[in-house]
Simulated assay, not measured.
Amino acid sequence: MEALERGHRVSFVAMDTLLHLLKTQDITRTSQARMRRILGSDLVIIDDLMFMAMDKNESNIFFQFINKLYDQSSIILTSNKGPEEWGELLGDPAITTAILDRILHKSEVIQLSGDSFRLKHRETIFGNF
């Protein structure tokens, strides 16, 4: 919110949506326009990174995307997996290393722990775990 208030261009995209956009940007105008907006952002927030395994093609296009953002935009990633677990989900050690090299080069890693924020407010439905 602070980046927006300071006049920065910010894009928020879920990882599954990002992969869809990356795969379809060469064939649909909607995806092209959304990717131009994301790549033109000062801050890109990618939600639920590594929530699902990627095939080699997806890993490659994700690397190309991160490489384009590197040194031109700030990136915030949310993930339920630590970087040490990304290799198995990206499926290629070389691509994983290249992605992590760019992401972690000038970053701050913040690890959160505790109860799920979403479930915390749903105790009336699910009871105590």
Rank of each mutant, 00 (worst) to 15 (best):
S11F: 09
V13R: 01
A14V: 03
A14C: 10
D16P: 09
T17L: 06
T17W: 03
T17S: 13
T17M: 07
L18H: 09
L18N: 04
L19M: 14
L19P: 11
H20G: 07
L21W: 08
L21M: 03
L21Q: 07
L22H: 02
K23Y: 07
T24D: 12
Q25G: 00
D26V: 08
D26Y: 13
D26F: 12
I27Y: 13
T28I: 08
T28V: 06
T30H: 15
T30W: 11
T30I: 12
Q32V: 01
A33Q: 11
A33F: 03
A33I: 05
R34V: 04
R34D: 03
R36M: 04
R36G: 03
R37G: 04
R37L: 03
R37W: 02
R37H: 10
I38V: 11
L39A: 06
L39K: 14
L39F: 04
G40Y: 11
L43V: 15
L43R: 00
L43G: 01
L43T: 01
I46Y: 00
I46D: 00
I46A: 00
D47I: 08
D47E: 14
D48Q: 12
L49D: 01
L49C: 13
M50P: 04
M50W: 09
F51I: 12
M52H: 10
M52E: 06
M52K: 14
A53V: 13
M54E: 06
M54H: 13
D55M: 08
D55S: 07
D55Y: 09
